[in-house]
Design a protein around this nucleic acid. Structure first.
Lengths: 169, 169
DNA sequence: CTTGACGTTGAACTTATGTTCAACGTTAGC
DNA sequence: GCTAACGTTGAACATAAGTTCAACGTCAAG
């Protein structure tokens, strides 16, 4: 099978297949005398496996370390380990997403809950105050500081101390 | 306030702050006569807002288009629109994650459910077969093709037709 | 024999979000 | 006045997962 046919059968692009080979995800493939790559039918399955793993959240790097050269002989322990860790990763991400979503929903509600007699600027101030009070964790700011947003712009001093290091992540 | 102090109060790095300015996320800031950037206390709030929005899943690009130069005057409609869309995005991602997780859990269970009398290679074949049968959507392969994994390696022909274009996304 | 489709390569480009570096200027404390 | 800490710039580097391009070779049909 030539690379174009393989691309059709897997739904991938030829550039992607060559890329996978380049990064060592696919082992170097046989060539015909004209230099064309020639794939065994197996290759369809391997690429399908890669696509599936990728959709499940594995990086190409992870897939490479897990994928055996012989589909019959997997590293059972490493595989189960990776699967378990990936499930945990997903759960962590799910938790973060749920938080983000809840946060956004509260924000939307809060914005819409503008008192009838409040103008937009004041409402912006109210919402912003609520938001910043809800998330003091990474901001060295007190609710008082939010008054900076007042129309009067009183320029209250920002407290010194209790500051965080700017650590590179 | 000089940039180092701002970095400390926001928990960001100075390079990040300069980067935000470079991409137009922060408007160009006042300079002292020596060329040093000098920030109003407001800047702490703005950076806090940016960080919060980013954690909620907004890209810097999205944040830039939403963030008004004056915190008093938001584009209410654009903001609500963006929030609503972001919530929908999160929900879509949640659905995908739930699917991935379920898929992985089934896979783990399936691997562990190896019949006592089955060796590892045969189990690999069994699991792989199940997996590929579960996801026929993007692979031009029939369950029969999975027999390619047999020790005998019978090289069954891969069917022609019903193939997909390799469209670039 | 020509034309178009397919194949090959290496290198450069992409996106998003920054970091790091070199070379230089400024400032505060001793 | 020296030194350390801080500030400035532009450019290059990093990551992940590819795509695109130019320049070239091969093959099948008409």
């Amino acid at each position: 099978m030539k690379i174009g046919e393989l691309a059709q059968q897997t739904g991938l692009t030829t550039s992607k297949i060559r890329f996978y080979e380049r990064i060592g995800l696919l082992k170097t493939v046989d060539r015909r005398s004209n230099g064309y790559r020639t794939y065994p039918p197996q290759a369809v399955l391997i690429l399908g496996l890669i696509t599936t793993a990728q959709r499940a959240g594995f990086t190409l790097d992870e897939i490479r370390t897990l994928l055996p050269s012989d589909l019959q002989h997997w590293d059972h322990d490493a595989l189960m380990d990776a699967l378990t860790r990936k499930i945990a990763d997903i759960e962590a991400l799910q938790a973060r997403l749920a938080q983000s979503k809840a946060h956004l929903l509260r924000l939307v509600e809060d914005i819409q809950a503008r008192p009838e007699d409040m103008d937009c600027a004041a409402n912006a101030h109210r919402v912003l105050t609520n938001m910043l009070m809800e998330h003091p964790e990474n901001l060295d700011v007190t609710p008082d500081d939010v008054r900076l947003l007042d129309k009067t712009d009183r320029r209250l001093s920002v407290r010194k101390g209790r500051s965080k290091k700017a650590v590179s992540p």
